[in-house]
């Protein structure tokens, strides 16, 4: 038995060693996004640039570039072209779009599709919710853009605590675990592609008693305060089955569906639409703008 355990231990050690080398040599783990405190908001470090890699065969290898406002975009949001219709898009990881090159973000697709009659700025970060959305709206967007589009799901509109915007969302000092994560290519690889932390949490939670049951979201759960901060320039975007539109109706904000005209290709390790999904989103916005503003046609 002793020899067997030694054999297995050595094999596992060699495996980890080979995995660390392989992921480094073939750059299978990519870069970690550098978070940064910007005016009390937990965003991304301005000027950071790199490649996000996902999949054992680098199925996703996308270029990201962080602008001066801390969002993933080729543009800085300091000026707006007065001759163009200005559009802001707010959302979470789907709008942030780290699964495609920053050159192919929803904003760039929309600008190309409208022959640059519109100028689009995307305000998004993974994990953001309605509190962040309303905070972004009041901080950056209100009275500045002609139209604002917000991509949201049921889960987003019930949360009561911001994940990135406002005080209390400071980046914690680097812990040993965080340093280990940043330096170890194999841990990053396993976490990105095999959802290691999610699986461990799931397995651990199986043994924990949980009284909370995931009930259907009702009007009582909705974060009314955050939604009331939005104004009539805002339009909600949703995917079928992901947002109960009746929850938004009382706020008298337009709601448009992102229809699956192009089939979004979702890899097993990532279900963030990729390029086709972003085209669908851009098309939904374009069609809506064309209807309400003839200048775009």
């Amino acid at each position: 038995m002793k020899k067997f355990i030694i054999y297995i231990s050595v094999t596992v050690f060699v495996y980890f060693f080979l995995l660390e080398i392989t992921t480094r040599v073939f750059d299978l783990s990519g870069h970690t996004l550098p978070e940064y405190n910007l005016n009390n908001n937990k965003l991304l470090r301005p000027g950071a640039e790199g490649i996000i890699v996902q999949g054992g065969m680098r199925e996703v290898a996308s270029h990201y570039k962080i602008n001066q406002q801390g969002f993933n975009s080729l543009k800085d949001y300091t000026t707006l072209d007065e001759n163009k219709i200005s559009i802001a898009i707010i959302g979470d990881s789907y709008i942030q779009g780290l699964q495609v090159d920053v050159e192919n973000s929803i904003g760039r697709i929309l600008e190309a599709e409208t022959q640059n009659k519109v100028e689009v700025h995307e305000y998004a970060k993974a994990g953001m919710n309605i509190v962040d959305f309303s905070s972004i709206f009041t901080q950056f967007i209100k009275n500045r853009y002609d139209y604002t589009f917000i991509l949201a799901t049921d889960k987003d509109i019930v949360l009561k605590k911001a994940s990135a915007m406002g005080k209390g969302n400071k980046i914690p000092k680097n812990s040993i675990m965080r340093k280990l994560y940043d330096r170890s290519s194999l841990i990053r690889y396993l976490n990105i592609n095999h959802k290691l932390s999610v699986k461990i949490k799931k397995t651990v939670s199986f043994f924990k008693k949980t009284n909370k049951q995931q009930n259907k979201i009702t009007a009582i759960d909705v974060n009314v305060q955050a939604l009331k901060q939005l104004d009539s320039t805002c339009t909600f975007l949703y995917e079928k089955g992901k947002l109960d539109t009746s929850l938004i109706v009382p706020f008298k904000l337009p709601i448009i569906e992102v229809k699956p005209i192009y089939t979004p290709i979702n890899h097993g390790f990532d279900s963030h639409w990729n390029l086709n999904g972003r085209k669908n989103c851009a098309l939904a916005i374009q069609n809506h703008i064309e209807k309400i503003n003839p200048k775009v046609k």
Partner: peptide, 20 residues
């Protein structure tokens, strides 16, 4: 044996499509 097993495990790790 150790090398073969470790390499096999490596190929499995790289190939597996989580979520599929």
């Amino acid at each position: 044996g150790i090398i073969i097993d470790a390499v096999l495990l490596l190929i499995i790790t790289i190939s597996v499509q989580i979520g599929s």
